[in-house]
Design a protein around this nucleic acid. Structure first.
Lengths: 211, 211
DNA sequence: ACAAACCGACTGAGTACTCGGTAGCTTCTG
DNA sequence: CAGAAGCTACCGAGTACTCAGTCGGTTTGT
């Protein structure tokens, strides 16, 4: 009945675990979970395949750890600047998108790529990660909806726009532009994001709230 | 030097080929190309695996046939109502999206699902279908851009909006909403599409063009 | 001494694809 | 107009390979 199990992993173990997840994110972002073998990940992370399976009892367990990291990243991406940004959420999104082109080979790109790849691999309802995908999506929609609704209550945002439908639209745009940029990194993401944010702000804002 | 090779396939052969592609689209939409074996497809199509490989010399060849069908579908989806719809393109898109919820298990859903799944599997530049993906994306963007530009020339659309960036935004929204709907078919796609189209039209139209 | 961290060798279930055929239809030939 | 020849359309049984996961061990830190 002890409430918390003793953490039986040493600092070294945690470090290895972390390195494995890092590598897994990179590989999965490129080739998908189905296109990445445990052997590939293990080799790149500097352990044997058996060593990897010591830390993660199965591929599915590793995939869940990867998903954890992805969700944490998404969380930070949207809400890192404050819990209730109101209609400034579109500016926050545009700001983050502007930094994409300079990081096409970095950690951020991997986490973004993973989003697209993992979603593609788990659209089917009977896949391992599908429930977490649905859950993550709904949570995000709910939080964006809440932010927009409170903006309406503060008088920042027009009342004749449905917050939930607008939240869906915003998230769809994010996801779609991300996918487009992954497929073709030469597209002008920053400019597209800037125009989008400017027009959204004009559309959402009440006349009195324009500074 | 005979300019056209004789079509060596009989009517029966073409029919079987077609049936195989049909089945492949369904399977790939659910489990991805990597998650679908030739044996699965062959069994469902009522041929042996060897029989399948008689019609498509390799899995990659079959995947390309599947991609052909997808591109033809996308073409019809966007331009089936006429080659130059102007800013009414947003209404056309919204109209098609409205019909999604009633077809979640049909052929359309398969072709839509395939889009997301195949994109996820081919974000990496060194995959078989990646060049075709990039090509398809750029072609679509160019055509939407051209439509918007000619709308500007006709005075239907405001001049202070960049047509290419707006085209990217429109396609991103389409793709993002499609992905969201595949993951969670309970979301109100029709309502989201309707609100989006109405707001886009208001934003794009010149004051003189409003009827 | 003891447990966490790790490894080499293996297994069994897939996987795409090949090989050597056969059934049935059309077409050419004596 | 018989029948040989040739073609498309298919199949059963393999082949070489990859994959996630197991087993029985050894090393390393404290």
């Amino acid at each position: 009945m002890s409430p918390a199990q003793k953490p039986k992993t040493s600092a070294k173990g945690l470090e290895t675990r972390d390195r494995i997840v890092d590598v897994a994110v990179r590989f999965i972002a490129r080739n998908g979970a189905r296109g990445t073998s445990l052997a590939d990940i293990a080799a790149e992370a500097g352990v044997s395949q058996t060593g990897l399976l010591y830390h993660f009892r199965s591929k599915e367990a590793l995939l869940n750890a990867v998903m954890d990291r992805h969700l944490a990243f998404s969380e930070e991406w949207l809400w890192g600047d404050g819990p209730d940004p109101g209609i400034k959420i579109v500016d926050i999104i545009a700001k983050h998108m502007t930094s994409w082109p300079s990081q096409h080979d970095g950690k951020v790109a991997s986490l973004l790529g993973m989003n697209t790849v993992v979603l593609g691999e788990n659209v089917s309802p009977d896949t391992d990660l599908h429930p977490r995908l649905v859950d993550g999506y709904r949570t995000t929609i709910d939080r964006v909806t809440a932010t927009l609704r409170s903006a309406q209550e503060r008088g920042e945002m027009r009342e004749d726009i449905d917050p939930q439908l607008k939240a869906m639209e915003i998230i769809a745009f994010c996801y779609g532009l991300e996918a487009a940029w992954l497929v073709d990194p030469t597209i002008p993401v920053a400019a597209a994001a800037a125009q989008w944010a400017a027009q959204q702000t004009r559309q959402l804002a009440t006349a009195s709230a324009t500074s």
